[in-house]
Amino acid sequence: MSFAVPTEHYLLLSAVLFCIGVAGVATKRNPIVVFMCIEIMLNAANLGFVALGRHFGDVGGQIYTMLIIAVAAGEVAIGLAIIVSLFRTRETIDLDEADLLKL
């Protein structure tokens, strides 16, 4: 079975998106944008899963994707809640202002 668009194309696209996400996570100081970049990385992984699922004729790739979406939803809910409470206590959300992890 050959496809109009080979699976490699999708995987390369997925890799490119993932690298863009990494760049965002590593350079942004706004935690909301950092979260968005993490979403981009997750989406890139989803794309890879679905493409490989199609390639091998296995529905598991799609199910993985949906589980990842569920986890991402939870992660965003928690992450944004952390950001809100961080903003409440420190009046800013700049990541470089927050060094609470150092005890």
Partner: peptide
Amino acid sequence: GQSGYVRFYAK
């Protein structure tokens, strides 16, 4: 190595 900055840990 322990700066306390989240981004440092992320990196």
